[in-house]
Structure formats: C-alpha cells, structure tokens
Design a protein around this nucleic acid. Structure first.
Lengths: 285, 285
DNA sequence: CGATCGTTTGACGGTGCTCAATCACCGTGG
DNA sequence: CCACGGTGATTGAGCACCGTCAAACGATCG
C-alpha cells in the first residue's frame, strides 16, 4: 500500500543516502600513554611495549557524532575510553538496525580488519573518547607489547560472548521479556562499571531499544509501563529504577506475560491472562 | 495457562539438564601440519612457525555429536577444517536458541578465552574435522608464527562482521524476507567454498532455521512454499534451488510480502495484498 | 512393518504492528 | 514572556501476521 522505499525516493529524488545525515565528528585530542590503555583493558603493563609505543592517539567524539561510518575505509581499530556508543547499520530504505551498545573498555571497528571497510556505523550516545590503534601499526604494536596483544584478544573474546546475549534479547519471546533481558544486561553493565545495579540512566532512545529488541518503539513504551505495573520498575522517561530484581529476572526467563507463580505486586487490570507460553521452535517435552 | 518450565519440571522432576542430552563426541585423529591450517585460513605459510609448531591436533566429530558443551571448561580454540557446525544455547526451559552456522575456515570457541568457559554449544551438522589450538599453547604459537596470528585475527574479524548479518536475519521483517536473507547468506557461503550459488543443500532442520530467524518452524515451511510460489525457489525438503536470484534479493530487501513492482512469476492466489510495508522502529520520512 | 522424526498444510486466535492523537520537553525567535 | 515548531514518549483502536494447536504425510530406521 504505502511503500517506504519509494516514498523516500519520491520525496528526495536525489537525496543523500541515509549514512550521510550524520557528520563524522571525531577530533584528535592529547594522546595518552600505553599504560593508560592497558589499565583500561585490565591487563598488567609491560616495559617492552612502552618503549616502542610512546603514545597512543586519542580521539574525542561528541554526543550524536559519528566515530566510524558504515562502508568507509578503515584505518584504525578503537578501544572505548569513556562514554558509550551505538553500533548500527542502515539499510537502503533508511531503516536503522541497532546492533549493539558499547561501553568503556570494548573494542570497536575490528570487523573492518578482514576487508578494510567498516561493516557498521558507530555514533556516540554521550561525549566520548577512544583510543585509536592504527591498522598500519597494529601488528607491530601487538608484537612489541604482549600485554596489549593479550588485552585485545580478551576484549575480542568478550565481544563474541556478547553476541550470545544480543541474540537472547532478539529471541522471539514476549516483548516484556526482551525488555527485561535488556534492562538486566544494562544492570550488569553498570555493575561492571562500578555503579549501582538498580538505577539505570538510559542513554539511548526508545526507538534504539526497539530496534535492538526487534519490536516497534510503541511496544517498548507499552512494555515499560507493563513492567512498572507489575512492580518491577519505576520509570521516568530515561531514568529507570529496578524495584524488584527477582521479579524482573522472572519476567526475563518467562516467554509470555507475567509468570503465574509470582502474583502482581500491585494488582493491575492490565495483566494478560490465558496467553500461551510456547515460543517459536520450542522443543516439546 | 500452560507453562513450559513448570511442565518440564513436573514431568522430569530430577531430570538431567537439557545440555546433557548430547554426548561430547570429539575423537582425536591424525594431527596435521601447520601449513595445512594456514592454507585453510588463506594466509601464506612462514618457516619460523613450522619449526616451533610441528603438528596441530585434529579432532573428528560425527554428525549430531558435540564439539563443545555450553558451560564446559575450555581448553582449546578450534578452526573448522571440514564439515559444518551449529552454534546454540539452551535455556533452562529447554528452548534451543540457534546462534550461528559455521563452516570450514571459521574460528569457533574463541568466546571462551575471556573466562575459560564456553558460552554456547557446538554440534556437527555433518561429519566434520577441526584443528584444535590448545589455549595453553595459543599465545606461544601465535608468537612463533606471525602467519597463524594474522590468520586468526582475520577470522575473528570475519566472525564479528558476520554478527551484523545474523542481526539482519533476525530483524523484525516479514518471515519470507528473513528466509530470503538466510538463503542468500547460504548462497554466499557456497560461493566462498567454490560451489554453485544456486543449488543449496540445507544441512540443518527447519526448526534450526526457525530458531535462527526467530520464527516458528511452521512459518519457515510456509515461507518456503511462498517463495516457491513466487518463482524464487524450487524446494525439495533439504535441497533448494534458487531459480530467480534477483527476485529473491527483492524479497530480502522488502519488509513485507512480495514487492509490488515484481509481479509473480507463476501467478498465485496465495499472494498477500494490501500489506503495509513499514517495519518496527521505522524512521518516518 | 510399526515407531519416530521431520515436514507440510489447515484453522483459529492473539500479540504486536500500524496508524493516529496527545502530551511533555526544548531551543528559537518574535 | 509566550507562541511556535520539532522531537520523543505515551496511549488508544483496529486488524493482520504469525504463533499455536492439530492432523496428515513421507522418510528413515530398527
């Protein structure tokens, strides 16, 4: 009936492609010492590395600005020093598929190593700084500093392990369960950064969350209010407080609605009843 | 109403957990030379490596047997030599979430490096062989053979790039579009292995595909017949032939149903009409 | 040949996508 | 200061896609 792709084409016949709406916004700033990077990655520094690698370039990216552009030639791999990023891919019809959210200590842009081009874009969700590891130097630096090499391998391993969690959030379960999993994941994230696991400040919009979870952004809104009605959360736009961690975990485990054996904290007429609990591809007993 | 989790618990009160239904099935076989591994990874061999690394252990895994078990201690990283694998994670209620399908040349089990435990299980979809890189030796081997190191980094980069494609297949678009994307991905896979891009032999069940795509396995069946009705495919259980690559790509691009500007090859009453084309989280013009 | 599993097809109902209206919030400029 | 437009979040209504349940069929295997 109404086709987004043609609609866009008609509205802006010779418009720039979607990946041009953002501006590359990384600006150089004072370089750092290797030991700073190694500390961030959680590995002990080594003397040999610091001799060869005097300084590591640092880039600063402001909120909403791009660190890397999908399809662009890659000239470096980055390690997030502070702030957070959203990784996404925009398809030709303008749809923005969010792939991950990234925080301090994580490696980004490594996908580009195999063919020299970035597979996805990265935009800062808040003012951020990144260490840049020039591809030209990468092998030499890793050879010079076993600690850097080890830190990178560990970070890459974590990235791959994270892919499992993302798949769980996109799994075909009830929208409330996906949101619960996302919030629990964020909570873990906060703990790793030494902050409270209960008070979350969402740096991303409802639409970004929706894209990651694979639902409509209106559904994310509804799921937030549902979880709040069930006594799991207190929600104020982007400030979320987890009131009942056990119940939230129960919602994340369950595939549909609210588990029966955990009656609502604050009884609500909104509670769904009679919903089936099987999910796609379920193994039957 | 009917809760899978409790139902399982009632049926098998002291049952083994789901990840015990498979048996670890990897058996050692004649080790290979480093140059074989390097050739598989697409990097030029180096003399220094072959001196230190005389032989590389090779394991054989038969169809349906496990290479690694979720949660098990990891003692090696593997590179698939032949055959193919399914990576999956089983949740406590028995649901099997497929995460990826893996073929020759790909690195598996690397997620375990960061905490020493495998995050997901790997089962052979056909008789397979893998190179084993013992974690104990990994750093030493990489240092001894720059070629091995480079090959590993490239393979890891490809794995991360693949995560983007998996996300696209799980994206909230029409079931036919997801299946189209999956088949196109498989087709690319065949090309990389030097085989025909049109004739696909599916090594996995409908249920596995369904899990990866995030739909019910019945929906996968229906999508296969829909794509066949639209003239894209010829389907015979697990043998799939792509008849119209351009049309299949159009289906993969589109979010809902069959694109209007490509009338069905073989007119079918099954064709859906009036379906909207927006998708969750769509950016409105 | 019976049993089990995988695949296909049909029917039905519900979740969640779509569309739409409303509100809160914000930076701008009159 | 307040009107103004723009963005993001929330809520409601309708309906269609697809998940669920069911049954039938073919294939494989003991």
């Amino acid at each position: 009936m109404f086709n987004v792709h043609t609609a866009r084409a008609e509205a802006h016949p010779s418009d720039d492609h979607a990946w041009f709406v953002h501006r590359a916004g990384a600006t150089p700033t004072g370089p750092a010492r290797l030991t700073d990077l190694l500390a961030l990655m959680g590995v002990a520094p080594d003397a040999s590395g610091s001799e060869v690698i005097q300084t590591v370039p640092v880039w600063r990216v402001r909120t909403g600005e791009l660190l890397v552009q999908e399809g662009a030639d890659a000239d470096a791999v980055y390690v997030v020093r502070s702030g957070s990023f959203k990784g996404f891919k925009t398809s030709e019809d303008g749809y923005e598929q969010v792939l991950s959210f990234l925080a301090a200590g994580e490696v980004v842009g490594f996908e580009a190593l195999c063919d020299g081009h970035h597979a996805a874009s990265l935009v800062a969700l808040e003012d951020a700084m990144v260490f840049a590891l020039p591809l030209r130097e990468l092998d030499r630096w890793r050879a010079a500093s076993p600690a850097l090499d080890r830190g990178l391998q560990l970070a890459l391993s974590r990235r791959l392990a994270r892919a499992v969690e993302v798949a769980e959030m996109m799994a075909p379960v009830a929208a409330e369960a996906r949101l619960s999993r996302f919030l629990l994941w964020l909570s873990d994230w906060m703990v790793h950064r030494g902050q409270s696991p209960r008070r979350l400040l969402l740096r991303m919009s409802r639409r970004d969350i929706a894209s990651l979870l694979g639902v409509a952004h209106e559904t994310v809104s509804r799921s937030f209010t549902a979880l709040a009605d069930w006594g799991c959360l207190k929600v104020d736009i982007r400030e979320v407080e987890i009131l009942d961690m056990a119940r939230l975990r129960a919602c994340a485990r369950n595939t549909r609605g609210l588990p029966e054996d955990l009656p609502p904290h604050a009884p609500s007429a909104r509670r769904r009843v009679g919903a089936s609990t099987r999910r796609p591809g379920e193994l039957r007993p």
